[in-house]
Design a binder for these strands. Structure first.
Lengths: 229, 229
DNA sequence: CAGTTGACTCGAACAGTGTTCGTATGTAGA
DNA sequence: TCTACATACGAACACTGTTCGAGTCAACTG
């Protein structure tokens, strides 16, 4: 019975005392990391998404995450990938292609808005992500079925996805409704000499309930598409 | 001749020796901070914009900046304000309103692209910035002169400015041309069963020289506007 | 002129951040 | 039974934005 076995003996005893709380035995996996991270973002926003916070929620240290995830950027990619996997592209219907595009974009928008601030990751994410390519594929099918030329479709998809990310980013930045009355008052305070049109149409400038602005912009893009072909 | 005057005497002597290098006497001002920050961003990108870096370039410590600037966010605002002041809105010409909008957006785009990554600040900036409102005013004048309804004009301006920020952000993220051949090869590697359209139109998908995609998206928005009114 | 106020300057420190190193640990294969 | 190997992770590094408080200097004020 050398020293080595004495230490083993000690650890066995220690484990004996910790027996009532062996819940921490589950190994860390990419899946658990992603789930934890998403929950964190949903509850406290993207800024709260920290390697340390995720690790703490998993009852470990930050270093443990790097065995499963290359980077924080890599983790961000995984998150937007997971979100992208939650949007489903409908089977193309040539008659309703515009509504179908709006539907897909709406799904993506809702996914992004559910996790405040995560759109920043979407904007920074490499465009070659496999899961976002799935959405691109779905949209491309819809556009082509709608009679849009491949080149226009490709560029329109780019514009549309970019807009969705930017819109959701901006929206989740200003928490909920950012005091529209205040905003209106400030616009009215502007000197009429320098800002005549803004002052005149101040109320129109920050009109728009819910996602009216969102749908308006997308419809603009799609309507413009029919004049180009 | 008490102790106090002895110290003064000492400082006078010390100053005497530092006389050959009194260049650091210029006081810190908001203007100098902004200029230094912009130079830093232009040279090394927005990520390099640190309070410490700016302070170091001004030969002082970070704390000194906070007498002139509330926050880093405040500094960011000042930067995009300065950039916005560099774009000039032309006098509205009803016949050429679309080209005028494209011109203003192009100016803004070039400003943002000159300072890589600063578009992130533009996306995060509060929409009520006085200098960006100047651009909004100019655009609003152009749209209204072009016969666009106030409501459509307001929302279109929103969409257009959002797109410019998102486009420039994404563009300055991927440094220059991000190996289009590599991107194409990756697209071709996709399984045809799951990504039929992407594989077929892979070359079309990342086509587009210079700012073709930029102008295409903006024209889409503006063309869509004429069908709405 | 003396004195006080107030703005400016800035070294030091705090609480965070992402990431790496080196060492444990436990499990699968020889 | 012993070794190899992937996973786990405490400690530390180089950063970040920001605050405190002590110092400096100019300009008003009694």
């Amino acid at each position: 019975m050398n020293r080595k076995s004495r230490e083993e003996w000690a650890t066995q005893i220690a484990e004996l005392e910790q027996e009532p709380a062996p819940a921490r035995k589950e190994p860390i996996t990419v899946g658990r990391i992603v789930t934890t991270a998403l929950a964190l973002v949903e509850a406290e926003g993207f800024d709260a998404l920290t390697m340390r916070r995720v690790a703490a929620a998993l009852q470990t240290g930050p270093a443990s995450l790097y065995a499963h995830v290359r980077n924080k950027a890599d983790l961000d990619d995984l998150l937007i990938g997971t979100l992208s996997r939650n949007v489903s592209a409908p089977a193309p219907d040539a008659e309703r292609w515009r509504e179908q595009v709006l539907d897909v974009c709406g799904q993506l928008r809702d996914q992004f808005l559910r996790y405040p601030g995560i759109a920043r990751a979407a904007l920074s994410a490499p465009p070659a992500n496999l899961d976002t390519l799935r959405i691109t594929e779905g949209l491309l099918a819809i556009f082509l079925a709608g009679g849009v030329s491949p080149r226009s479709a490709a560029w329109a998809i780019d514009a549309v996805l970019l807009y969705v990310s930017a819109y959701t980013f901006e929206t989740s930045l200003r928490g909920g409704q950012p005091d529209r009355a205040e905003m209106l008052a400030r616009l009215r305070m502007l000197p009429v000499s320098r800002f005549p049109h803004i002052v005149e149409h101040a109320d129109t400038l920050n009109a728009g309930e819910g996602h009216e602005r969102f749908e308006f912009a997308l419809r603009l893009l799609l309507d413009g598409l029919v004049t180009v072909g």
